[in-house]
Write a protein that binds this DNA or RNA. Sequence first.
DNA 1: TCCTTTGTGTCAAGCATTCGACACAAACGA
DNA 2: TCGTTTGTGTCGAATGCTTGACACAAAGGA
Lengths: 124, 124
Amino acid sequence: MSLVLTLDPDDPTPPYEQLRRQLADLITAGQLGPGDRLPPLRQLAGDLGVAVGTVARTYRELELEGLLTSRRGGGTRVAAAGRARATDRRQLLRGMAADFVARARGLGFTDEEIIVALSRQLPS
Amino acid sequence: MSLVLTLDPDDPTPPYEQLRRQLADLITAGQLGPGDRLPPLRQLAGDLGVAVGTVARTYRELELEGLLTSRRGGGTRVAAAGRARATDRRQLLRGMAADFVARARGLGFTDEEIIVALSRQLPS
DNA sequence: TCCTTTGTGTCAAGCATTCGACACAAACGA
DNA sequence: TCGTTTGTGTCGAATGCTTGACACAAAGGA
């Protein structure tokens, strides 16, 4: 499994937060399943070019959310699903779709315009 | 015209940046047209509950991008369109749609799942 | 058992952001 | 003309994030 985690240096959003969002989405979407192991702090920090403490902060926050479990020497893994993952997965996509549509409408785009733009990206 | 600008206190993204993105989108989408006046620094700062300097930073950055023009005593207005707004408008939506689809695919959702989720939000 | 890996915690330093307040200059309106 | 509005700039203080380094504890592997 090759994790695709990236940081945008031009984004004023703090790196620990950029990383947290990506991992949270990957887990909720099921790309990372319960028990899956995440990269060690030092490795991920080295790959992304940030300090160890920054990645540690991301892992800590996700553990507080119940998405990860960490053990010294044992690494950091995706927590056993407390809730039904299938439901979360569906809700995540539904929320993403709703956000996208709401944002487009708020910018004055008509439903027709939105549909046209989407049909360029999706086979239908 | 009642601007809908909001700040999420829980979002670690700096307020000046949250505001900058919203205004940039509104302008590019054409919701705010050339010559339209924006709220005075002090008024917007008061409404959003932030310091004047924070809103000033947002206006300054947008002026550097060429989207706004500011004059002492004259207020801040949307700059005269340097480029064809119609094109920008279309490209903005196209980019938003592409980002949404790419993100969903990256999270492992199939095109079919994406279409189903969207059809719940859009009449078609 | 012993060494390595790994997460956790601390620390000081630097930097960016925000805040609140104030002063100033330019445009506007009566 | 004169007072108001408005953007700009500065200042010090506070807060939060990142960095780099270090030590420590727990788990795993040879």
